[in-house]
């Protein structure tokens, strides 16, 4: 039996999780460093509402780029992200069954769950968990989220992050990511990972390490940050001007306030920070400060978002709201 192609691997994992009640989402269409940063994880794990989602997330890490020359490292790798909120009691067994679904006969392999706790200072998030080892290869990060955006989670969520390139290289037994068969036609013709992505790895490595305009990137960072901050300020001002809860008179609907837009701006900042970092443009003294600034945005969005979730659903009154936002 042929090992699954890269796209078959994706399809099988997606249908496995779809069959277990997950919403199949599309990758988030902004640059993120990990699936965790996509709103389907970062925002959905907040608050009490149960949710199950699975999505592919191309994850960009500018400093990890290797001009397409390293067989094991990528600027942009592909994660399959699964969020189970709250996690079912048999979450580990479910996960193991997903491995069987992609053709791994567990009885013929060595599987271990080794301690590996996850933490993201920029997101104010951390969790407890394992790296799942398959014959000595780390194939999944399995995390029980405990905190996100500086907020204690209740219920917690289980996050499963599959490293798809690694899994595919393992299943196809190839030594270079670029040799992974991405798609195989009916005639047996193969399109490889290299065919699909090598140029992107090379050119974006050049961009991130050599070409990105540092001065402009700093400007972008400042602009995105300023806009994000002013949105967050407006949210709280709006909330305050609405007066005491339970008094519907003259309220502007909080629900239509674009906090999701604020979060996009925060993600933009994070990616630009990563580019500046890859460019070697962030000095010692700046580095800690910039991370703290982005963290403040992420934490600010999380706090406001949680508040917005708890806001009552009001009748929309568009004119009023628009003026308030830019007050």
């Amino acid at each position: 039996m042929l090992a699954p192609t890269f796209q078959e691997l994706i399809l099988r994992l997606q249908s496995f999780w779809a069959e277990r009640g997950c919403v199949l989402q599309q990758p988030y269409d902004l640059e993120v460093g990990a699936g965790t940063m996509a709103p389907e994880t970062f925002l959905r794990v907040l608050g009490p509402k149960p949710y199950r989602v699975a999505y592919l997330q191309p994850s960009r890490r500018p400093a990890d780029g290797r001009y397409g020359e390293n067989p094991n490292r990528l600027y942009k790798h592909t994660q399959l992200q699964v969020i189970l909120k709250p996690p079912p009691d048999d979450v580990q067994e479910l996960y193991l069954r997903s491995l069987e679904a992609i053709g791994i006969d567990l009885r013929k392999h060595d599987i271990k769950f080794e301690e590996d706790n996850w933490e993201s200072p920029t997101l104010g998030a951390w969790g407890i968990g394992w790296q799942v080892m398959l014959d000595g290869l780390e194939i999944t990060q399995f995390t029980y989220f405990q905190q996100c955006g500086g907020i204690d989670l209740d219920p917690i969520s289980a996050e499963l992050t599959y490293g798809l390139e690694r899994l595919a290289a393992f299943l196809q037994d190839v030594d270079s990511i670029y040799d992974i068969v991405w798609a195989r036609g009916a005639d047996g013709h193969c399109v490889t990972y290299g065919d699909v992505r090598l140029a992107e790895e090379l050119q974006l490595s050049v961009y991130n390490f050599e070409a990105a305009d540092v001065a402009k990137a700093w400007q972008h960072l400042q602009l995105f940050e300023a806009e994000c901050k002013s949105l967050l300020d407006s949210y709280w001002k709006l909330k305050e001007s609405n007066g005491a809860p339970g008094d519907p008179s003259g309220q502007v609907p909080l629900k239509r306030f674009p906090l999701l837009g604020a979060f996009d701006l925060c993600l933009k900042c994070s990616h630009i920070f990563n580019i500046l970092d890859a460019r070697g443009a962030i000095s010692v003294t700046e580095r800690v400060g910039v991370i703290a600034r982005i963290r403040a945005l992420a934490v600010g969005v999380a706090k406001a978002f949680l508040d917005q979730q708890q806001a009552p659903i009001e009748a929309p009154s568009p004119e009023h709201a628009t003026t308030s936002i830019h007050a």
Binding site: K108, H109, D135, G136, L137, F170
Partner: peptide
């Protein structure tokens, strides 16, 4: 199979 996988990783 397991030996082979571990050799690959190493």
């Amino acid at each position: 199979v397991i030996r082979h996988g571990n050799e690959r990783v190493l």
